[in-house]
């Protein structure tokens, strides 16, 4: 379970998060929507302790992230897969080494056969050929890099996965494959996840609940059907704009 209680964060004079409350239950997929620049990435980073909130509590698996000691934090992070918005692949290593570093279990990491099999398996899950393993990140397209980032995040069989826009920049077919992967991880392994996304329609299909972050707060939250009908003004504005765009044929 991931619990975010009253979390605030400011950068200089800019208030980014202003009392965010959010609970993601065990085995639940939460989609996090919100306009660009509202602090969705900041919130995800706060969950794994890459950004320390100014106020509030973040509790993952009954552990307070903001006050965890080094070793305990590393242990906790090993159970959380994080998909970075821009991939954040290690560019001095090939794809195989990248995915291998995602094997957070030391024994698995040390076992070259297991590492290879697992890397190939994860690449298949994100619809990439096994021969991608030998490529360097610079030789990949943006969408491929993003998918390798996803493969790296899930390689260690994490209990939690935080996706920062996993489908942005992907073609519709690959977007659907990633959406299906999110669902499959949840169904087969009981993974709990938060998925930041701009793909409103995709999130309606994959998420159990949807939350909207604007103005530093979660302004609406609920299952897709409820969320769609939410009377909250920000939700209406957000959805209408999205469907407007879709009407103009410029969706996503």
């Amino acid at each position: 379970m991931i619990e975010i209680k009253n979390v605030s964060k400011r950068f200089g004079s800019q208030k980014v998060l202003n009392g965010v409350n959010l609970v993601v239950n065990e085995g639940e997929t939460m989609a996090l929507l919100g306009p660009s620049g509202t602090g969705k990435s900041v919130l995800l980073k706060a969950i794994i302790g890459l950004i320390r909130p100014d106020r509030g509590e973040i509790i993952v698996d009954d552990q307070h992230v903001e006050s965890l000691k080094r070793v305990a934090l590393s242990k906790l992070r090993a159970t959380i897969g994080y998909v970075f918005q821009n991939g954040a692949l290690f560019d001095s290593m090939d794809v195989f080494e990248n995915i291998r570093l995602g094997l957070t279990d030391e024994a698995e990491f040390k076992n070259p056969e297991y590492a290879r099999t697992r890397a190939a398996e994860c690449l298949r899950l994100v619809n990439l050929q096994p021969d991608t393993m030998k490529k360097m990140p610079a030789q990949l397209s943006g969408g491929m890099r993003k998918r390798v980032g996803i493969a790296r995040a899930i390689a260690g069989k994490p209990k939690y996965v935080l996706y920062d826009e996993p489908t942005s920049g992907l073609d519709p077919v690959n977007s659907d494959i990633i959406d299906a992967l999110v669902t499959r991880l949840k169904d087969e392994l009981g993974v709990t996840s938060i998925m930041v996304t701009h793909d409103v329609r995709g999130s309606f299909r994959t998420a159990d609940r949807i939350a909207l972050l604007t103005g530093g707060k979660i302004v609406a939250i609920g299952p897709p059907d409820e969320f769609k009908e939410s009377p909250v003004a920000e939700v209406r504005a957000f959805l209408e704009r999205d469907f407007d765009l879709e009407g103009n044929g410029a969706a996503k």
Binding site: K45, I48, L50, R70, L73, S74, K75, L76, R77, A78, I80, Y82, F84, N86, A88, L89, F90, D91, L101, G102, T104, R152, G156
Partner: peptide, 17 residues
Amino acid sequence: TMRVTEQIDALESLGRS
């Protein structure tokens, strides 16, 4: 470069120091 392209964050996110 690793810092500004979030590679250091990525390493930490994998529980590695």
